[in-house]
Simulated scan of single mutants.
Amino acid sequence: MEQTHEYMLTTDEVAAHFDLSPRTVRHHLQLGNLRGAKRNRDWRCRWPDLWAVEKGPTPKGDRAAFYKAPLLSKSGLAAKERISVRTVERWVEQGLPTRNVFGSVRIAEVDAEEWLKWYFGREG
């Protein structure tokens, strides 16, 4: 279902995207660290406002769709790749692109895939 208003993301959807709890998201909305609007007793957010707090490049054009996917934590990427968190931390030190969300390191899956292809010379 296509949303007709720009404040379309619920607190739960934002929490899932950032891999945080809904309570943490509401806290940051109340503090003004994340922009949002109150709708029917709950907060709603826009994608540009989420990307603004991610402390990474703002996705533009066709690439924006890739950045609507949930972000991975270091442990989430480690589980996906079946490696240790320490290996992910080494990759971050070596240049794996990250997005910092309220002090937590998060990784866009598209960035991880592209970087790993480059780093390991993986084929698509």
Results as ranks from 00 to 15, higher is better:
L72M: 14
P70M: 03
N33W: 04
G121N: 00
E123N: 09
R86L: 13
S104N: 09
A65Y: 15
G121K: 04
R35A: 04
D62V: 12
E109R: 09
D111C: 00
D111P: 07
V92M: 10
A65K: 15
M1I: 11
P57A: 10
V85A: 09
P59D: 00
W115S: 00
I107P: 11
W115A: 01
D42I: 02
A64T: 09
T11F: 03
H27C: 07
L77N: 01
V25H: 01
G61H: 01
M1L: 15
Y7G: 00
L31H: 13
H17K: 03
T98Y: 06
E123V: 13
N40I: 04
Q3I: 09
H27N: 08
E89W: 05
V110H: 08
D49Y: 06
T10R: 01
T24K: 11
N100T: 05
K74W: 05
L96W: 07
M1S: 14
G95E: 01
A108E: 07
L96D: 00
R82I: 04
L31R: 15
V101G: 03
G32R: 07
K74Q: 15
V101L: 04
S75A: 15
D111Y: 08
R122Q: 14
N33A: 05
A64V: 09
G121H: 02
K80S: 14
R23C: 09
S104A: 12
W91H: 12
T11R: 03
S75N: 12
E93Q: 12
G95K: 01
L31M: 12
G95S: 03
A69Q: 15
N100L: 15
P70N: 01
G56E: 00
K55M: 13
S84L: 11
N40E: 13
H17P: 09
L72T: 02
R44A: 05
E113K: 13
A15P: 10
L50N: 01
L72N: 04
L20E: 07
F66R: 13
Y119T: 04
E89H: 11
L29S: 06
S84Q: 08
D62S: 12
V101P: 06
T11P: 01
Y67N: 03
S84E: 10
A65N: 10
S104E: 11
L34I: 06
R35D: 03
L20Y: 14
W118S: 13
V25W: 05
Q30A: 11
S21V: 00
Q30Y: 13
G95T: 02
E81L: 15
G56C: 11
E109I: 06
H17E: 02
W118R: 13
L50F: 08
A15L: 02
G124N: 10
L31E: 12
C45V: 12
T24R: 14
K38A: 08
G56I: 00
